[in-house]
Amino acid sequence: MTLIARRSLLAGALLAPALAGAQSAYPGRTVRVINAYSPGGTADVVCRILFARLSERLGQSFAVENRPGAAGTIAAQAVARAPADGYTLLYDATAHSVNPALFGSRLPYDTRRDLLPVFLAMVTPNTLMVTNGFGPRTVPELIAHAKANPGRLDCASTGIGTVQHVSLELLNHRAEIRINHVVYREIAAARNDLTSGRVPMQFSNVPSTLPVTQANQARCLAHCGPAPIAQLPGIPGFAETLPGFETWEWNGVFTPAGTPGEVITRLNAELNATIRDSVVIERLTGLGALTRPNTVEEFAAFRDQQTEFFTGMVRMANIRID
Rank of each mutant, 00 (worst) to 15 (best):
D92Y: 03
E308F: 02
M201F: 09
G237Y: 03
F238C: 02
P243M: 00
C224D: 03
H173Q: 10
V206S: 13
Q231E: 15
G69T: 04
E176V: 12
C47T: 14
G151P: 03
V98T: 06
C155N: 14
A289T: 01
S157G: 04
A301I: 00
L153I: 13
Q214P: 06
A84T: 11
G59Q: 04
Q306R: 11
V182Q: 04
L210Q: 14
L116R: 10
P83C: 06
R174E: 09
V199I: 15
I160Y: 04
T138E: 03
L232F: 11
Y184D: 06
T213H: 10
N180V: 02
I319M: 03
R198S: 08
G69W: 00
V45W: 06
A227V: 10
N66P: 11
R48L: 08
H165G: 01
R29D: 14
P39M: 08
L102C: 06
A36I: 07
T195M: 15
T285Q: 09
V183Y: 07
K147W: 06
A22T: 14
D304L: 11
L128Q: 09
L284C: 09
T138D: 02
T247K: 01
I179S: 00
V31A: 01
T138S: 15
R185G: 15
L10W: 09
L9I: 08
G244Y: 01
Q60V: 13
N192R: 13
L102R: 04
P68D: 07
I275T: 00
G312F: 03
L120G: 10
G261S: 13
G104W: 04
G312Y: 05
G151Q: 05
P150K: 05
D304C: 03
P83G: 07
F245V: 07
R137G: 13
I143E: 00
T94G: 00
L10E: 09
T195S: 14
A230V: 06
A121S: 15
S38W: 05
Y91R: 03
A175S: 08
V314Y: 01
L115R: 10
P68K: 05
L3I: 07
H96Q: 09
T124I: 06
C155D: 12
A80W: 02
A43D: 12
S8D: 06
W250N: 06
R32I: 05
T111P: 03
R112Q: 13
N180W: 00
N318I: 00
P233I: 14
C155Q: 13
P207W: 09
G261T: 13
L153C: 05
